[in-house]
Nucleic acid binder design. Structure first.
Length: 500
DNA sequence: TAGGATTGCAA
DNA sequence: TATTGCAATCCTA
């Protein structure tokens, strides 16, 4: 079946823009005001099948005609993205594919199937968790009121601030736009001396889990105990998906009660398993691939722990403590996001002199990473855009802004996009190839979720052995003849919690 | 009731 | 003064 989507086409031309719907595009491109459904249905009083036929027809032709007009105008992606082959490191080239025709449009069908399928939850377990959290929150509440000598709304940052910094006179730390911050960082610091801060912190944590996850998920589960998220394909600036109603891409996995939330996600049938397949350290691997840095490439070729390797460079020794590894990990990630020494020092709670040294040493150890970023920024300043491995494009025109803050913000966007966006390209291609494999082999196992660098499946017992091998194999071989080895791990369990 | 502000959850 | 997201809640306009 052939199909097309004007919204996807427009998104790919410029993923930053809003107003990609048919109405907005008709207005923007053809100065045409489409009739609203409100007009036709007399302010939603009528269902569409109750609308007078002539009125309905008069409303419908616009959708058809405007879609066709846009389709004709948009044409093929090749018109605006002409280069045929992209040279990357190690003499490897990536054959240009048309990301609309060969990636996003086929993915649309897969995402739609995933949404309709839904993921099963254990409603009874969530109900039980709801009661337990309510009880815990209620107890915390009384303790807090006792220490505060008054009742107030603990969920109101304003009232918490007034109590802590006003009535109780606790030391103030950082500011928000309007007053003094009472976020978790501040509360944790205060909690060292003042028990009430620890209690408020815990209350926050439990309230978050209860309202967003327990109640939130129970509210949207259907009569078959399944949750159907919406995967949005035209929201992010980098090419990632996003998930709403509910967002299933930010389910907690903290080390305590938060983990319990994931216990509620279960396979369709008693005998099935949930399996999570995730790309291991894909962003640093992509940095190695795209920069062509030999030291990074060697580290992965030798199957080294990349944070350990960076730590060895930074601290110039072979025995690395867990703190040193943690620091190196923060540096590895920080570089991908274009972090400043200031922020890194704050994050690691070390002097700015040290954090600056760590970042400098990183670039000295992986010299081609700096070259890669220099070239990237130079090109972004000249052309106004950056691109992924598979030619997805993001425009960052403000990189030439006279305001230095605005320009450096755009620089960080430009630095991050090729990595985050290539990651998105790769997992999207993996989803296509995996689905193709499942179809070809008449598999009963199905894809349920995508969480940026991992895929969650409902696996039936008779396919377990094969798919646990085949799916990672497909994921690892998305880039043909690559100088870098992509690594995919599989973890299975009777609930999402066990897939860790 | 709409929307900004704050907060916190994920990769 | 680290990238990309979504949502609950409070509270003002």
């Amino acid at each position: 079946m052939r199909y097309y989507d004007t919204m996807l086409a427009e998104y790919l031309k410029n993923p930053g823009q809003r107003g990609l719907g048919l109405d907005a595009l008709a207005k923007r491109k053809f100065q045409y005001d489409m009739k609203s459904y409100d007009e036709v249905s007399q302010k939603k009083k009528l269902r569409f099948d109750e609308v007078d036929l002539e009125v309905a027809a008069n409303y419908s032709w616009e959708d058809v005609y405007m879609t066709w007009k846009l389709y004709s105008e948009q044409g093929s992606m090749k018109d605006w993205n002409p280069s045929p082959v992209k040279p990357i490191s190690g003499g490897v080239s990536i054959q240009k594919l048309d990301i609309l025709q060969d990636m996003e449009l086929p993915l649309l069908k897969i995402l739609s199937d995933m949404e309709m399928r839904g993921i099963r939850i254990d409603r009874d377990f969530l109900k039980w968790l709801e009661g337990r959290l309510e009880q815990a929150i209620w107890e915390l509440e009384s303790e807090i009121y006792e220490l505060a000598w008054e009742d107030f709304n603990i969920k109101s940052p304003k009232q918490v601030g007034e109590l802590l910094f006003g009535k109780l006179g606790l030391p103030r730390a950082k500011k928000t736009k309007t007053w003094y911050s009472v976020d978790s960082e501040v509360l944790e610091e205060l909690a060292k001396k003042y028990p009430i801060a620890a209690l408020i912190s815990k209350h926050r944590h439990y309230s978050k889990l209860l309202s967003t996850y327990v109640i939130g998920l129970l509210e949207v589960a259907d009569e078959d105990d399944r949750i159907h998220t919406s995967f949005n394909q035209t929201v992010t600036a980098t090419g990632r998906l996003s998930s709403t109603n509910p967002n299933l891409q930010n389910i907690p996995h903290g080390d305590d009660v938060a983990w319990e939330i994931r216990k509620a996600f279960i396979p369709y049938r008693e005998e099935d398993m949930l399996v999570a397949f995730d790309y291991s350290q894909i962003e640093v691997r992509l940095l190695a691939l795209m920069s062509g840095d030999e030291n990074l490439l060697w580290a992965f070729r030798d199957m080294r722990d990349i944070h350990q390797v960076t730590a060895e460079f930074i601290f110039k020794k072979n025995t690395i403590s867990s703190t040193e590894r943690k620091f190196a990990k923060a540096v590895n990630f920080g570089v991908i996001y274009g972090i400043s020494p200031f922020w890194l020092s704050k994050m690691l709670d070390i002097p700015q002199k040290d954090s600056r040294h760590y970042i400098d040493t990183f670039y000295a150890s992986y010299p081609k990473v700096r070259e890669f970023y220099d070239t990237l920024l130079e090109k972004a300043r000249k052309t106004g855009y950056v691109e992924t491995l598979f030619w997805r494009r993001r425009y960052t025109p403000s990189i030439n802004d006279r305001n230095k803050m605005i320009a450096s913000w755009a620089e960080r966007e430009a630095i991050n996009m090729p990595i985050q966006g290539s990651n998105a390209d790769i997992i999207k291609l993996a989803m296509l190839q995996i689905q193709e494999y499942l179809d070809k082999n008449n598999c009963k196992s199905v894809m349920l979720l995508q969480v940026h660098d991992e895929l969650i499946f409902n696996i039936v017992p008779e396919e377990k052995e094969t798919l646990l091998v085949e799916i990672p194999r497909i994921m690892e071989n998305i880039i043909p003849n690559s100088s870098i080895h992509l690594k995919a791990d599989a973890v299975m369990g009777k609930s999402w919690k066990e897939c860790k």
